[in-house]
């Protein structure tokens, strides 16, 4: 079977969930090999990659690969592609992932498809575009196909295998070192799941009315083990930090459950959440356009409905 390279997303040495999803998807295309770039590879990481079927893990360990944004990662991948001729390369659709894919495409003169939500065995990718209004099937016709895949697109299914570590050393070029990371500022961790990967997202918009109003949104999120999101109206007003913005100019999420509170449903917002599997809308305005997308909607004051549902969930827990 042909080899499929899967780039591992990791933070603080922990493999992110999207990587298990990508390995699961890669098994339908060929034999997955994981690619770990940066410091922090461990037995625990190897165990996760093996659990989801990575027979080989290429490890390019070293700070030089992450101390310069994106460019060194593309160089490592280009080297692996030329040495091993994989049938395709899968990368998570994060900001870094998409840029890595773009630079790799130029280096290996290959086509790239971003934000796939599925890939068939014959390499045809499914994308949901224009705020989810259109489904497109497309394929790469030149070179080694490169796909970036959205988190939450493939349910991860284990297929335990033993994993062989293959160390790779790719010298980083001078050009790739021209931009240098000189500091990292971690926003206060809220202890909730990562917004782009979360199975459930609870979000608030203009109807929340003030920064303090987000406490009811957070309480509901915590009762469900969910991530918190916000509409642009809420982040522009400074009620909630920018990195939690869901929408056209923020993050695109595709959770199992999306609970929108006090969000009217501008195209700006829909584009970031329309592919969520189940959508719940709470809004006091019965004309709010987001009700069109709702599987379940409550017309009412979110400051009455949200605390009540939170209490109910706690009772049932």
């Amino acid at each position: 079977m042909s080899e499929v390279l899967v780039v591992v997303e990791h933070a603080d040495g922990t493999v992110k969930k999207v990587t298990s999803e990508l390995l699961t998807l890669a098994r339908t295309l060929g034999e997955p090999s994981a690619v770990w770039i940066g410091p922090g590879y461990s037995d625990a990481a190897a165990a996760v990659l093996g659990e989801f079927g990575a027979a080989k893990v290429y490890v390019a360990e070293g700070a030089q690969y992450i101390d310069h944004p994106v460019a060194p990662r593309a160089e490592v991948l280009a080297s692996l592609v030329s040495e091993h001729s994989p049938s395709s390369v899968l990368i998570a659709s994060s900001a870094d992932g998409k840029e890595t894919a773009g630079r790799l495409a130029i280096k290996i003169n290959s086509g790239v498809i971003t934000d796939a939500i599925g890939i068939s065995a014959d390499g045809i990718a499914t994308q949901s575009v224009f705020g989810g209004s259109t489904v497109v099937h497309s394929k790469v016709i030149k070179g080694t196909p490169i796909f970036t895949v959205r988190p939450n697109s493939t349910p991860p299914v284990p297929a335990v295998t033993s994993t062989t570590r293959v160390d790779v050393t790719v010298p980083v070029s001078e050009v790739a070192m021209k931009a240098k990371v000189t500091g990292r500022t971690v926003a206060q961790k809220d202890g909730r799941p990562d917004l782009s990967e979360a199975a459930i997202v609870v979000s608030g918009g203009r109807g929340v009315g003030a920064a303090e109003g987000f406490s009811v949104i957070e309480a509901l999120a915590d009762s469900l083990g969910a991530a918190v999101g916000a509409s642009r109206a809420a982040t522009d007003a400074g009620w909630y930090p920018h990195q939690y913005q869901v929408g056209q100019t923020g993050k695109t999420v595709s959770p199992q459950l999306y609970v929108a509170n006090g969000i009217s449903g501008a195209i700006q917002h829909r584009a970031g959440m329309q592919t969520s599997k189940t959508i719940v809308v709470v809004n006091k305005d019965p004309e709010a356009p987001l009700f069109e997308l709702a599987d379940f909607g409550v017309v009412g004051d979110l400051f009455k409905v949200v605390p009540q549902v939170t209490e109910e969930i706690k009772k049932r827990a």
Binding site: I279, V282, F296, G297, V298, G300, K304, Q308, V309, E312
Partner: peptide, 15 residues
């Protein structure tokens, strides 16, 4: 979808 109007039990129905 199902849209209900909150008559004091909207949160319960949502749950």
């Amino acid at each position: 979808g199902t849209i209900v109007t909150d008559d004091g039990d909207g949160g319960v129905k949502l749950a």
